[in-house]
Simulated scan of single mutants.
Amino acid sequence: MIDRVSTPGIDVPDFRGRTGLDQMGRDLTGNPDVVVKDVELLAAAWHVLRRTTLERRRSNGEWVTEQRETYDRGNGATLLPYDVERRTVLLSRQFRYPVYVNGHPDGLLLEAAAGLLDDDAPEVAIRREAEEELGITLGEVQHVFDVFMSPGSVTERLHFYAAPYSPADRTSAGGGLEDEGEDIEVVELPFDEALAMIDDSRITDAKTIMLLQWAALRGPFRS
């Protein structure tokens, strides 16, 4: 008799208590020209890598079989705090290995504060991240837009927010959660300097560029 082998993340819980990670996408019915045939779990450490086999009807009517790998890290939220009176914005700087290994000089990326939702509503999550990373307690926040950041391979949808702040809203030093390995520098910049940093590549993070340009074109610093 051959014993059945259990696979963490599929039929027994992985270290995060998850099962059924090979089921994502099998029940999709929104597009009649796409039929999911199989989903393989390739990796399930903190986030999840899947390989999906699907049949897709092309625009000429031909059906083709394709495989796509998707990286599922959950959805997230990001925030641009701004001070109109002092004409400043609040950003963060932290080490990002993926950019370091792909040509960034030191991997210390200047960016808008952000974090995963972790089953919270987007606004709840971004208030949490503002306190943990930036040390500010937010009042009213504005939802700006939602964006798929890397739709060719990453499933994440990022929820963008902006909110006013003042020095009185700085209720802690920020810096992130030490027990989660976060080591974040809080960076306050004049808004005009932040825009200039896009032009000379000192700011190269997509979500940050999008929020700064929104602030200039349609947000609190529009002409």
Rank of each mutant, 00 (worst) to 15 (best):
E185C: 02
S172N: 15
H143N: 00
L195E: 08
G135V: 14
G181S: 05
A196E: 06
P167G: 08
M197R: 15
E182G: 04
E178C: 07
D169Q: 14
H104Y: 02
F160D: 07
E156L: 10
F145V: 05
G176Y: 06
I126P: 05
P98N: 15
A125T: 01
E180N: 00
R170L: 14
G115L: 00
A163M: 08
A196D: 13
P167I: 03
G115R: 00
D119G: 00
T137I: 12
R202V: 01
G175I: 03
A113D: 04
Y165G: 07
L108G: 06
V99R: 03
G139M: 12
G175K: 14
Y100Q: 10
F145R: 01
N102M: 09
F148M: 04
P164I: 07
A130N: 05
G175F: 01
G152S: 09
F148H: 14
G139N: 12
P98K: 02
D199Y: 11
A194R: 10
A112C: 07
E129R: 04
E132L: 14
A114P: 06
V101N: 05
L189W: 02
L195T: 06
V99L: 12
T171K: 14
A121H: 02
L134I: 15
E140M: 06
H159R: 04
E182T: 01
G175V: 10
Y161P: 11
A194E: 11
E133Q: 02
H159Q: 02
S153T: 02
D183I: 05
V144L: 06
A114Y: 10
A112F: 01
S166I: 02
L138E: 08
L138S: 12
R202D: 03
D192L: 02
V187T: 07
D183C: 14
V147E: 10
R157Q: 04
D118Y: 11
Y161V: 03
D192W: 00
D119R: 13
A196M: 08
I184D: 08
F160K: 01
P105N: 07
L110K: 03
V186N: 05
V154G: 01
A112S: 04
D199I: 05
Q142F: 08
A130Q: 05
D146Y: 07
E132A: 13
G152L: 04
V141K: 06
I126V: 11
F160R: 07
Y165I: 10
L138M: 14
V187Y: 04
S166K: 03
P105R: 14
E180Q: 07
D169E: 15
E180Y: 15
D120A: 15
G107W: 08
M197L: 15
E131V: 09
L158N: 04
L117S: 12
E182W: 10
G139S: 11
S153Y: 05
E129A: 03
V144Q: 02
I126W: 02
P98E: 08
R157D: 05
A112Y: 06
D179H: 09
L134C: 11
L134E: 03
S201L: 13
G174W: 08
P105W: 09
A173T: 13
G103I: 11
D192M: 01
D183K: 12
E140F: 06
E178L: 13
Y161T: 04
I198V: 07
I203M: 08
G152V: 03
A130W: 06
A196R: 11
F191H: 09
F191Q: 13
I136R: 10
L117G: 02
D106Y: 11
P151G: 07
D120Y: 11
D120Q: 13
A112W: 00
